[in-house]
């Protein structure tokens, strides 16, 4: 079976490291980018099974990147990683067809649940 790959786009190094470590536990190789435009280019070249996007980033925001990715590949599985956000932002994320919203701080159980649901879907 081919190696499973996940893309993590987040401007915070702490978060990139955490997600990489978690994802390794579930058999994913994590490829990380620290800004949205690089993230989109990498998405197109590696075709990851899972994509994790930070919502608030300099340059293009996570929501804009989500829209670009879904337009490019409607089948892409995208998880939006957020801090505390307003109900309004949450609505925008849902309208942009995110597959899941993961609010920080999250724990291993939450991430495992998401990965399992997406993998079995």
């Amino acid at each position: 079976m081919a190696e499973k790959t996940a893309l993590v786009v987040d401007d915070s190094e702490i978060n990139r490291n955490i997600l990489s470590l978690y994802l390794e536990l579930y058999g994913y190789r994590a490829v990380c980018e620290d800004d949205g435009l690089k993230g989109f280019e990498t998405f197109k070249s590696i075709h990851p099974q899972l994509t994790f996007l930070d919502v608030v980033m300099p340059g293009i925001s996570g929501i804009e990147l989500l829209k670009k990715i879904k337009e490019y590949d409607p089948q892409a599985k995208v998880i939006m990683v957020t801090s505390h956000i307003s109900q309004n932002t949450l609505k925008q994320i849902k309208e942009a067809q995110a597959d899941w919203v993961l609010q920080k701080p999250f724990d291993e159980a939450k991430l495992e649940e998401i990965i399992q649901r997406i993998e079995s879907a």
Binding site: L21, Y22, P105, F106, D107
Partner: peptide
């Protein structure tokens, strides 16, 4: 607080 410190705190928890 809700973004930057929350991020660091998330790292600590993990």
């Amino acid at each position: 607080l809700v973004h930057d410190i929350n991020n660091i705190n998330h790292g600590l928890l993990f």
